[in-house]
C-alpha cells in the first residue's frame, strides 16, 4: 500500500463509514474494506481511476470535488479522507468546512510548500519549484492552492478546528526525528487529522 495510506489507515477505526475524496484507484477503500470492515464511498473524476475502482468493487461515484458535497447529509460519515487533493481544489477552505459537516473527523494530506527544497528553488533560483514529487510547471499544474504546514494550521485555527493528529513525512512517508523537530522546513507531506470545534477526539 502507498505509504501515506498506510499511516492513514491506522487513524481510521474498524467498522467506520468513510468518504474518500479523490479516491484514485480505490486502494485505500479496498484495503479498509478487507482489513477493517469499513464501508463507504469514493469520489473520483479520472476515468481510468474510476474503471480501476469498478474492477475492485469499490463504491466509486463520479463527482467533482469543486461542486461541493451538498449531496451528502451532515454527519453521515465517521471519517472523510482527502489525500493530495487539497491543493488542487477551487475552494480549499469551503471544502474543508464541508468535509467537517459531512464527517465527524477529517484526514487530510497535502504537500508542504514550506519544505526547504521549495524555499531553496525560490530563494536561490527565483523559480517556482519543480520536483519529482510535484513535476508540474506553474502554467500547467493542477495544484492551484499551495500552502505550508503553518498556513494550514493557521486556517485550522481561524476555522476553530481541532488538530487531533499531525505528521510531517518525507516523500517516502518516513517520519524522521528531523521532520518532527522542524516539520515546516523538513517535512514534505503533511498528514492531519482534524475535527470540528464541537467534536471530541476518539
Amino acid at each position: 500500500m502507498r505509504a501515506d495510506l498506510d499511516i492513514i489507515q491506522d487513524w481510521i477505526p474498524a467498522g467506520s463509514r468513510v468518504l474518500d475524496l479523490g479516491c484514485g484507484d480505490g486502494e485505500l477503500l479496498a484495503w479498509l474494506r478487507e482489513h477493517k470492515q469499513v464501508s463507504g464511498y469514493g469520489l473520483e473524476i479520472d476515468a481510468d481511476n474510476i474503471a480501476q475502482c469498478l474492477r475492485k468493487g469499490i463504491n466509486v461515484i463520479e463527482q467533482d470535488l469543486d461542486q461541493g458535497l451538498g449531496n451528502f447529509a451532515s454527519n453521515s460519515f465517521d471519517v472523510v479522507v482527502m489525500t493530495q487533493a487539497l491543493q488542487a481544489v477551487q475552494y480549499p477552505d469551503k471544502l474543508l468546512e464541508e468535509m467537517l459537516r459531512v464527517g465527524r473527523q477529517c484526514i487530510i494530506t497535502f504537500p508542504n510548500f514550506g519544505h526547504w527544497r521549495c524555499r531553496w528553488d525560490l530563494a536561490r533560483k527565483g523559480r517556482m519549484p519543480v520536483s519529482e514529487f510535484l513535476p508540474y510547471t506553474w502554467y500547467n499544474t493542477p495544484n492551484i492552492h499551495f500552502c505550508t504546514f503553518l498556513d494550514f494550521e493557521a486556517l485550522c485555527h481561524q476555522m476553530q478546528l481541532r488538530v487531533l493528529d499531525r505528521l510531517a513525512v518525507d516523500r517516502l512517508h518516513r517520519h524522521s526525528l528531523a521532520s518532527r523537530l522542524w516539520p515546516n522546513l523538513l517535512g514534505e507531506i503533511g498528514i492531519y487529522r482534524v475535527s470540528g470545534p464541537s467534536q471530541t477526539a476518539v
Binding site: R17, S39, Y41, I50, C53, L54, I58, N59, V60, I61, E62, Q63, N71, F72, A73, S76
Partner: peptide, 19 residues
C-alpha cells in the same frame, strides 16, 4: 441519475455512478 445515486448513498447501499 444523481438523484438515484444520492438516495442510494443516503440509504447506505453499495452503488457506483458514472457520468
Amino acid at each position: 441519475s444523481r438523484e438515484i445515486v444520492d438516495a442510494l448513498m443516503a440509504a447506505k447501499k453499495n452503488v457506483c455512478y458514472l457520468e
